[in-house]
């Protein structure tokens, strides 16, 4: 399953979640600092949210 995080393609096992996408991108620690993940419609998503093939996400660091 291929998804995009901050424009970077990532490959995940079907059933993996937003958390695993952040792990693969090496960005999980940004969440600990207060960063948030948003979907392509601009909605915030939780780390345990299911991802689907083709989804696009943006990690926004804490302002």
């Amino acid at each position: 399953m291929r998804i995009w995080l901050n424009g970077k393609p990532l490959t995940l096992v079907p059933g993996m979640k937003v958390r695993e996408a952040l792990i693969q991108a090496g960005l999980l620690q940004e969440i600990e600092k207060g960063g948030k993940v948003f979907d392509e419609w601009g909605n915030e998503v939780g780390l345990d949210g299911a991802v689907e093939n083709g989804c696009r996400y943006t990690l926004k660091p804490k302002e």
Partner: peptide, 27 residues
Amino acid sequence: GLPADVELAKAVRGIDIIVGGHSHTRI
């Protein structure tokens, strides 16, 4: 999940409201 909800709303006319889950989306 929201992406599938969007596809459902596009494909099936006559659904008034989709109350969703699975993608943990804050709409």
